[in-house]
Nucleic acid binder design. Structure first.
Lengths: 279, 279
DNA sequence: CAGTGGTCTAGACCACACT
DNA sequence: GTGTGGTCTAGACCACTGC
């Protein structure tokens, strides 16, 4: 019996009942444990389906940019109705994990599509829009393997002293250095990443991490403050140390709420502003 | 014929066909125009239903905090299936315009519920959380009727010189003045609002605007920068003019994307930070 | 044309809340 | 118990895409 349907167990809708009632070989279903599982383990069918699709996304069965099986195929695979699969996919689409395209299929979301250049960057130019402005010029200042400082390790869920890749770079728009970023990535997952690697990849960094290391960032949290730069930071951004800057600390997560990247950015806000929508 | 069903007009599903096919008196349906309407005018049924429900929300047929009719009632009123009404309400719930409560009904969203104190405020204390911190102490510095400055008028969609209510206040957390806000509201819609009014209302300002003036803010946009305060601002926030502050300009909208409030806030970020989630 | 996701319906049963 | 929203199914037709 592949799925648990609500709390009243062992229940199967009248109209269901496939001809082969016990061929649940292809679904890694959770055991129909009697009692005492710590995890809730009981949830609506469509959420269970969503979880299974998520597992396939994580495992790489379907890679970013590829199409996942059609709703009808998934319904057959999981032995549920198309409507249930649809609701599961609706949820995933709402979380930006997949993209639906009418007439074509449902695709695994990716950072490597020309759609929006920077998925997580909320900085916009005061005049015109980002498309007018054109892509950022990137300048990698530094990229090295170091022992994780205590605060970085804690934030990324590593042990203090574990190896992390630390990079520093400047993004310029129309010749004006606007963003100074320090980036920390777990050394384990991104073995081999270096400055040349970062500098040579033409698209967004997140696309590079996705394509070359198979790590897809699905969401992020930012803590924003106003700060003054130290002398080194001011020099890199070509401002005086008295220029207030936006301090943006971003923690980016991959599947399953696993933090995989910490960024500390300084944004100039004399020519740009940080835009946020509240709903 | 109350609704347009897709482009192939005059089509009614076989299983539909109510017993009284032409009693479309209670629905202000768009005309089944032949061609050439500038507005799309053709949209899925559930979006049309959503629009009708929206109209009732705007018109005040159901007030904030109240329950709207059940899905079954709405389905009967609009002569569509419950599933179609459900999808319309799902959309509205996703936009935070209504709140679904299992077993109780669907309720018009409101700012006047104890759930979250400040729906649009993204500032959190560095230590502990907002609930530990307790409510803000508010100090109204000023509240007067003035002619709208050009930039304010433009942003709020008014004519320059039209009357606006301009208020300035300080919010303190645990005795520390943390937020200095200038607020502009169209004088027309908020006739009679004054300093005593603002000071006496115990809850969030948005709840007061909703209850006393019937204007509900449904979403907002913020533009964030790092700035230095002028002398007056620094004094009010009890910081030096060299203290970098977050400048948060918020435009809040009521139904139909009508801007109804402009706020310019200065946030201290030495004890708090601005939190944002990216999806 | 066939295949995909999008819309719409109808009916069943469930979990939850109030009375 | 009754009524609410929540889940699940089944089947129909639609619009869009690409062969």
């Amino acid at each position: 019996m592949p799925f648990v349907r609500c709390k009243t167990n062992a229940r199967i809708p009248l109209h269901t009942m496939p001809s082969t009632p016990s061929s649940a070989a292809d679904t890694p279903a959770s055991p129909t444990g009697t009692v005492g599982l710590s995890v809730p383990a009981f949830s609506p069918l469509y959420q269970q389906i969503k979880g299974l699709i998520l597992q396939s996304l994580q495992s790489g069965e379907w890679k970013p940019g590829e199409a996942i099986p059609s709703e009808i195929e998934l319904a057959a695979r999981f032995r549920v109705s198309q409507g249930t699969v649809r609701k599961a996919i609706d949820d995933l689409a709402a979380e930006n994990l997949v993209i639906r395209r009418q007439g074509k299929g449902t695709f695994v979301a990716t950072h490597a599509e020309h759609q929006v250049q920077y998925r997580f960057l909320r900085l916009l130019p005061d005049s015109g829009d980002a498309s007018v402005e054109g892509p950022a010029e990137r300048h990698i200042i530094d990229c090295k393997l170091v022992r994780a400082p205590a605060d970085v390790a804690r934030t990324l869920g590593l042990r203090t002293g574990e190896s992390v890749i630390q990079a520093r770079r400047v993004l310029s728009f129309q010749g004006i250095p606007t963003i100074l970023e320090d980036i920390w990535l777990p050394g384990q997952a991104f073995k081999g990443l270096n400055a040349a690697h970062m500098a040579n990849y033409p698209g967004p960094t997140y696309a590079m991490l996705e394509l070359d290391f198979g790590v897809r960032m699905v969401r992020a949290e930012e803590k924003i403050r106003a700060v003054l730069p130290d002398q080194a930071q001011a020099t890199l951004l070509q401002v005086t140390p008295a220029t207030p800057l936006l301090s943006v600390e971003r923690l980016a997560y991959t599947y399953n709420d696993v933090p995989m990247e910490l960024r500390r950015g300084l944004y100039r806000t004399d020519t740009h502003y940080y835009r946020n929508e509240l709903n």
